[in-house]
Nucleic acid binder design. Structure first.
Length: 201
DNA sequence: CCCTGATTCGC
DNA sequence: GCGAATCAGG
């Protein structure tokens, strides 16, 4: 694969959107994250600037006007400011959800879709062993609450919540090698037919 | 160990 | 210019 205009464009877009090099590489296909990083540098956009505040860097006392020598090169006269500063996305990355354990953030149950019927085939409760069920409930408190975009091949892809509402995310805990779910969710996802049949009804 | 970006350097 | 290997870090 080579860096066609299209691919470079996608790279730029995703990079400025805050995507990681590996995510971009995955999206592009045919390249590694190293290739992406290398390209990013060659393009001179290593600094993920653009007026957007970094997820971290909460420190850096804003009071002291750090005497920064600025770049020796004079930038071309910019006609427009970097970005219209969209109101969305307060914190694209993790941004520690404080304590997700107790209080359930249900208040904002703003349904995007009229909460339709077609939910994913969740195993009915009476098909799950009590042990596994308890385990799952425990684990879901520790879930990393990943969004679809944040899933990797090694994160648990067990959906939690109602996909039709904002109250929806993926487990995200380390998945079992070769499995799409973490240990706990593997326990409810993969069960011997016999056990299933016996428990049903 | 999983991941992140940064840099180097042979190609 | 390219990107694997490597480095430095979370």
């Amino acid at each position: 694969m080579s860096w066609t205009d299209e691919r470079v464009e996608l790279l730029k877009k995703m990079w400025n959107d805050g995507a990681s090099a590996s995510q971009i590489a995955k999206e592009l296909g045919g390249v590694t994250r190293n290739a992406v990083i290398g390209k990013v540098h060659r393009l001179g956009l290593s600094n993920r600037v653009g007026g957007e505040a970094e997820a971290e860097v909460a420190e850096a006392a804003p009071a002291t006007p750090a005497p920064k020598p600025v770049e020796p090169k004079a930038e071309a006269p910019k006609v427009v400011e970097p970005k219209p500063a969209p109101v969305e996305r307060p914190a694209p990355q993790a941004a520690a959800p404080a304590a997700p354990s107790n209080v359930t953030p249900l208040p904002l149950r703003k349904a995007i879709i009229p909460a339709g019927q077609p939910l994913p085939p969740q195993p009915s409760l009476n098909e799950i062993s009590p042990e596994a069920l308890a385990s799952v409930r425990e684990v879901e408190k520790k879930a990393k609450r990943l969004t679809l975009m944040e899933l990797t091949e090694r994160t648990c892809k067990w959906p939690i919540g109602d996909p039709a509402t904002e109250d929806f995310w993926f487990c995200g805990l380390p998945s079992q090698p070769g499995k799409p779910y973490c240990e706990a969710h593997v326990g409810v996802a993969f069960q011997p037919m016999s056990a299933r049949r016996d428990r049903r009804r």
